[in-house]
């Protein structure tokens, strides 16, 4: 028993070391191929590539194809971006054109906007 538990713990720790600290897990909910959805996808990809290069995981859900995810995720407004990790969980709605608000909300920039630095992977939460 203890052996297997230890080995599981070791595996978890090893995996934890491999994964970068503070990796961003993002979910974007859109409605089909509407212009607003396309814009949101483009905007969020651009933002992630600039400020979180190689340090994010973005999943895109089309609720037309899969309506149940809208109910399960309590999605009402589209497009919606959910930042699952790092905590705290945050929700953003809109076509993601307001980069400043997104950066502040994702803790990539302080409220006064002075420290606009690309993410270097040293942030811990």
């Amino acid at each position: 028993m203890t052996n297997s538990r230890d080995s599981i713990r070791k595996q978890l720790e090893a995996r934890l070391k491999k994964s970068k600290p503070g990796k961003y897990t993002l979910c974007l909910y859109v409605a089909g191929l509407s212009p607003r959805s396309q814009k949101a996808i483009q905007n969020i990809r651009k933002l992630c590539d600039k400020y979180l290069p190689g340090n994010y995981e973005l999943t895109i859900y089309d609720i037309y194809k899969n309506p149940i995810v809208a109910k399960d995720g309590q999605i009402l407004v589209l497009p919606t971006l959910v930042k699952k990790l790092p905590p705290p969980l945050r929700k953003f709605v809109g076509d993601m054109s307001n980069t400043d608000k997104l950066l502040v909300g994702m803790d990539l920039r302080s409220e006064n906007g002075s420290a606009e630095k690309p993410f270097k992977g040293k942030r811990r939460t």
């Binding site: 607003r36 949101a40 905007n43 407004v77 589209l78 497009p79 919606t80 971006l81 945050r90 929700k91 953003f92 709605v93 809109g94 076509d95 993601m96 054109s97 307001n98 608000k101 997104l102 909300g105």
Partner: peptide, 8 residues
Amino acid sequence: IEETGEYD
């Protein structure tokens, strides 16, 4: 909820 642009 943060509003970051047009939505519906």
